[in-house]
Amino acid sequence: MGAGYHGGFGNTDGATHINNDNKKYETDESLKSELRSNNIKFNEADMVFITRDKTGQIVWLENGSSSAGLTHILDGKDGSPGHAKDFERAFGVQRQNVGLYLKEVIKNGSVVSNRLVNIGNGRQGYERVYEYKGNYYTMTGIGTNGFIVSAYPFRKDDL
């Protein structure tokens, strides 16, 4: 994602497309519609991206707050450091491109670990690790509804 990168994957202004059966194409709007039909709440105005990963789950990232979403990923919570510099060191991805990079990883990366974990207050979420082009994995925290709470890179040999 160099200087010439202008965003978007696929061919329709950033809409995500998968082709599982050579007939069905999913767009951002069809994925949002699926969330709505399943009564899953999301903030469309705050959405950075939406896609489906290799587990079949619809996954999306919102700008969020210091406790979840892109703001949390980049800047951390309650004085803890965020991961903007970690993404730059590990993948060469600058801060402003982390959201789009995560979309590419989640859409095209291989899921190497997928555990349902307790996240407190009686809630559960997925600790999902993606492998995508390189010596690092991307660890994610994804709610059971598909909302990306957090993400950060780590070396494969640390798993």
Rank of each mutant, 00 (worst) to 15 (best):
T27W: 09
T27Y: 14
T27S: 13
T27R: 12
T27L: 12
T27H: 06
D28M: 12
D28A: 11
E29L: 14
S30W: 05
S30A: 00
L31R: 08
L31A: 00
L31P: 02
L31G: 01
L31S: 04
L31M: 15
K32Q: 11
S33T: 15
S33I: 06
E34F: 07
E34R: 12
E34I: 07
L35P: 00
L35Y: 10
R36N: 12
R36T: 14
N38F: 00
N38L: 07
N38A: 10
N38M: 00
N39M: 06
N39A: 10
I40E: 01
I40Y: 02
I40W: 02
K41D: 11
K41S: 14
K41Y: 10
K41A: 13
F42R: 02
F42M: 01
F42T: 05
F42G: 01
N43G: 11
N43W: 11
N43Y: 13
N43L: 13
E44M: 10
E44F: 12
E44S: 12
E44L: 09
A45Q: 13
A45L: 10
A45H: 11
A45G: 13
D46A: 10
D46V: 07
D46M: 02
D46F: 08
D46K: 06
D46P: 05
M47I: 09
M47T: 13
M47E: 05
V48G: 05
V48E: 09
F49T: 03
F49K: 02
F49E: 03
F49N: 01
F49S: 03
I50H: 01
I50Y: 04
T51A: 02
T51N: 04
T51L: 08
R52P: 04
R52M: 10
R52Y: 00
R52G: 02
D53N: 15
D53Y: 06
D53A: 09
K54V: 11
K54M: 11
K54Q: 14
T55D: 09
T55E: 11
T55R: 10
G56A: 07
Q57K: 15
Q57C: 07
I58H: 01
I58N: 05
I58A: 01
V59M: 06
V59N: 02
V59Q: 02
V59Y: 04
W60Q: 05
W60T: 00
W60I: 04
W60H: 04
W60L: 04
L61V: 06
L61R: 07
E62D: 15
E62S: 11
N63F: 13
N63T: 15
N63E: 15
N63A: 14
N63H: 15
G64N: 05
G64Y: 05
G64I: 06
G64K: 03
G64A: 08
S65Q: 09
S65N: 14
S65L: 08
S65R: 12
S66A: 13
S66Q: 14
A68L: 10
A68I: 12
A68V: 13
G69Q: 03
G69F: 01
G69W: 02
L70A: 07
L70R: 09
L70F: 05
L70T: 05
L70E: 08
L70S: 06
T71I: 15
T71R: 15
T71Q: 13
T71P: 09
H72P: 04
H72A: 09
I73C: 07
L74N: 09
L74R: 04
D75T: 15
G76L: 08
G76H: 01
G76N: 05
K77W: 14
K77P: 00
K77M: 09
K77L: 08
K77R: 14
G79M: 02
G79C: 03
